[in-house]
């Protein structure tokens, strides 16, 4: 009898130990990084890893209002590059992103930012119409228009998404369909192929993980 009680106790103990050992999941950091040595008030030196961040930006949004990175302050956001007359990957990307948008519609800590790469045609009024027809209303999902230089540099250097003009492509532009997840400190925490449903599902799972990092 004692033996049985003892073995049950051992089992219970091991289960508790095992379950408490689960490590908290954290999303990776993308892009370049470097070490920085800082000295605190007591004079002790500390080495910190500094990750690549998205620089400040300023564009016109779908309401022709000057919009800066300030709108994303205190929020995590998902950024992508598209253009309204695109018939290849963009409709699929935005169809999938719409499902993410609908899932997090009521969460004030999540935002969406779509940059057009068609600097010739996609003026704010065109973006507004596109947003409405996609079924997006309000400031939670910003559609941004800017000069070729500013948008293309931001895409390639900072969000690490390849974009370009290409006269041989069907619609005149080529670009990658990544949905890039940015944290509240403007660091890149994920990149998901917006044309693949399984990766978009992963994004939906990763958003709460990233939000949880800030809850402590």
């Amino acid at each position: 009898m004692n033996k049985i009680i003892f073995s049950i106790a051992v089992c219970l103990l091991s289960v508790t130990i095992l379950s408490s050992c689960k490590q908290e999941k954290k999303l990776p950091f993308y892009g370049e990084r470097h070490a920085e040595t800082t000295t605190d008030a007591n004079g002790t030196e500390k080495v910190d890893t500094v990750y690549q961040t998205i620089p400040s930006w300023s564009f016109l949004n779908q309401d022709s209002v000057v919009t800066t990175n300030k709108v994303t302050d205190g929020k995590i956001y998902i950024a992508d590059f598209f253009f309204t007359s695109c018939t290849t990957i963009c409709p699929t990307m935005h169809r999938n992103l719409m499902t993410v948008y609908n899932d997090f519609k009521t969460n004030p800590d999540v935002m969406f930012v779509s940059h057009t790469i068609d600097f010739k045609y996609d003026k704010p009024s065109v973006l507004k119409k596109y947003a409405q027809k996609l079924g997006v209303d309000g400031a939670k999902w910003q559609f941004l228009y800017g000069s070729k230089d500013s948008v293309y540099t931001l895409a390639e250097k900072n969000y690490l998404v390849a974009v370009g003009e290409d006269s041989t492509a069907k619609d005149g532009y080529i670009h990658q369909g990544y949905l890039v997840l940015i944290d509240k400190d403007r660091r890149i925490r994920g990149a998901y192929d917006g044309t693949k449903t399984d990766q978009v599902e992963q994004l939906k799972k990763d958003i709460p993980v990233l939000l949880a990092e800030y809850k402590k």
Binding site: C90, Q132, K133, L134
Partner: peptide, 16 residues
């Protein structure tokens, strides 16, 4: 066709 009209022919908002 699927890019715009969707896997199940559901379309895309009022775009397609």
């Amino acid at each position: 066709c699927q890019n715009c009209h969707g896997e199940n022919g559901e379309g895309l908002g009022q775009l397609a």
